[in-house]
Simulated scan of single mutants.
Amino acid sequence: MEKQYLVACGTDSEDGSFFTKNHFGESRWYDIWRVSPSGAAEKIDRIPNPASQANEESHEHGHDEKKPGKIAPVLKKKGVSVIMGRSIGANVVRMRRKFVVVVSRSEKTDEALAELRKRLSEVQELLDAGEERGHMILRRPGTKDPDSQKERST
């Protein structure tokens, strides 16, 4: 059976076609995609940001930097092993201990997912590296971005 990965993409767009412009933790929603080496990525779930929901209920606005990490346990429970966005934010080290972190140079989730599919062997290497893993940067399709390689933690 072919290995499949569950990837959470942070988005603010209603249709999920674009990553959030802010960092991953400030996303309005997290779309969960099933990705495998063959076949197209399949969206299987959408989770609202628990930090945003708490803020709406308490009539506060914005992301609470003092209480990070509300989404990580939810994504882990759903079986997500990879998180992807345009920016991850100050909690990147903590998130790398729990997930393979992928930073996309593309704003479009479909472009990033297509590029990620080509590099699933690298995703597996990062998963196998354990909690001290680095992160991955994906270039925009059609560019030769020099930092489109795995980054090691420093």
Rank of each mutant, 00 (worst) to 15 (best):
E107T: 12
E111V: 09
E111N: 14
G130P: 08
M136H: 05
V123P: 10
R119E: 08
M136V: 01
V92T: 14
S106Y: 06
R139C: 13
D128W: 00
R117Y: 05
K98R: 11
R97A: 10
R140W: 00
E125S: 15
G134K: 03
I137T: 14
T143E: 13
V123I: 15
R139N: 08
G134L: 03
G130C: 10
E107L: 05
S104M: 01
K144L: 11
K118S: 13
V92P: 02
L126N: 14
G130K: 05
E115N: 03
V101A: 07
M95I: 06
K118P: 04
L138D: 06
V101D: 02
E125W: 09
K118E: 15
D110K: 11
M136C: 03
T143L: 12
T109F: 08
A129F: 00
R94T: 12
V93N: 13
E125D: 14
E122N: 12
K144T: 12
V93R: 15
R96G: 04
K98V: 09
M136K: 06
G134I: 08
S121D: 14
E131S: 11
V93Q: 15
S106E: 02
V123G: 12
V93T: 11
E132F: 10
I137N: 14
R94P: 03
L120P: 12
P141R: 09
F99H: 08
R94Q: 11
H135Q: 00
M136N: 02
Q124G: 07
L126W: 04
D128Q: 11
K118G: 10
V93H: 12
E131H: 06
R119L: 06
D110P: 05
S104P: 01
R119N: 13
V101Q: 02
E125G: 11
G134H: 06
L113C: 10
S104F: 07
K118Q: 14
D110N: 11
A114W: 01
E115A: 14
E115F: 00
L116G: 06
A112P: 15
S121W: 03
Q124W: 04
R96A: 14
V92L: 11
E131N: 04
E122R: 07
L126D: 08
L113G: 10
R117N: 07
R96F: 02
F99P: 01
R140L: 10
V100N: 02
G134S: 05
E125M: 14
V123L: 09
L113V: 08
Q124R: 14
V102S: 06
D110I: 09
E107C: 03
P141C: 03
G142W: 05
R97G: 15
A114T: 13
M95G: 00
L120Q: 10
